[in-house]
């Protein structure tokens, strides 16, 4: 059994290295993008082997799914879809890169060897009872280190604002399709995505899952709906409800962080008896924001003022 696991790990590592090489060094941009998507999927397997199922869920949905969709749509919009000549600049400096790479690899190995293994596991286990949830990763994300998550939701909102502020994407991302089946299918499938997201969100309090995976699945559902040609209700009009949803996560986390001060607690320290409901509320808000942000990132620009007008114009 042990030998079999070792063989599996070795094969996985070899496949990951080969795919990373394909994605960065072999000719053909399309092939590179596809290799990178498969790289993401295999990374999810590696996370499972490293006993990190939360990361595996997020990687499969965000790393492979959402990033893949973003990369493919960007590739489709590029004016020149292939590179001239080799993807490398010059092969002459191979004499520099091979020793330099080996030296760097050696130094990294040495550094990693001497790193003390992180030892916060016991502390997390000890205070898990006060966090209001049973899954240690969710407890760290939304209670012990909630400040990091606040900043991360902020980064997501900032990226959305940055993309939106570039104006409307001149090349439409929605394929012009005449089939009436696809939009209907997109609309029928979306409730399934919503159901899975709610399940993952609820599960996150006691098992792998949580806001990140839930938001990613919901966002993937939204992207699929757009791809199928169903007109979503997110528009560029001034009072679209999805602006509120986008900032809901950041607003809720800031509100809670400041609200507990009013209760006489330090910044971001929840009262122990209220911790469970607060974490669930924050997860819900963060999940919705992550889902909406992923859809907004996929649109790659300000959404059109009205989807009806947009599709008629085309």
């Amino acid at each position: 059994m042990g030998a079999l696991v070792l063989v599996f790990d070795g094969l996985l590592a070899a496949a990951l290295i080969w795919l990373a090489w394909q994605a960065t060094h072999t000719p053909g941009l399309f092939r590179a993008v596809i290799s990178f998507i498969i790289f993401g999927l295999l990374m999810a397997l590696a996370w499972v082997r490293l006993e990190a199922p939360d990361i595996a869920l997020a990687e499969a949905a965000i790393g492979a799914g959402a990033t893949g969709a973003l990369l493919l749509s960007a590739l489709g919009r590029l004016a020149v879809t292939d590179e001239a000549g080799t993807p490398w600049q010059e092969r002459g400096d191979l004499y520099f890169w091979v020793p330099a790479g080996l030296a760097l690899l050696g130094l990294l190995t040495l550094a990693a060897w001497q790193l003390p293994s992180p030892g916060l596991g016991e502390e997390v286990q000890a205070s898990l009872a006060e966090s209001g949830v049973e899954n240690p990763v969710t407890a760290v994300l939304l209670n012990f280190r909630a400040f990091d998550t606040l900043l991360e939701i902020g980064v997501l909102l900032l990226a959305t604002v940055a993309i939106w502020s570039l104006g409307r994407m001149p090349v439409p991302g929605v394929p012009a399709m005449t089939s009436p089946v696809l939009p209907a299918l997109g609309r029928v499938l979306f409730p399934m995505f919503a159901l899975v997201s709610v399940y993952l969100l609820w599960r996150g309090s006691h098992a792998p899952g949580g806001a990140f995976s839930a938001g990613a699945v919901m966002g993937a559902g939204g992207i699929l709906t757009i791809l199928a040609g169903a007109q979503p209700w997110l528009t560029g009009s001034a009072y679209g409800p999805w602006r509120i949803l986008l900032s809901l996560g950041l607003a809720a986390m800031l509100g809670v962080a400041l609200g507990v001060i009013a209760l006489g607690q330090p910044f971001f320290a929840y009262p122990t008896d209220l911790a469970g409901p607060i974490v669930l509320l924050l997860e819900l808000a963060a999940g919705l924001s992550i889902a909406m942000s992923l859809v907004a990132l996929y649109l790659a620009g300000q959404p059109p003022a009205s989807w009806n007008g947009e599709s008629m114009r085309r």
Binding site: E51, A52, D54, I55, A58, E59, I62, G63, S117, P118, G119, L120, G121, E122, V124, Q125, P136, V137, A139, V140, L141, F144, R145, D148, T149, E152, V155, L156, F212, I290
Partner: peptide
């Protein structure tokens, strides 16, 4: 036991 803090940080990093 398994340290949950790097897991949470990596989740944040992926997003």
């Amino acid at each position: 036991p398994l340290d949950a803090v790097p897991h949470a940080i990596v989740l944040t990093g992926i997003v």
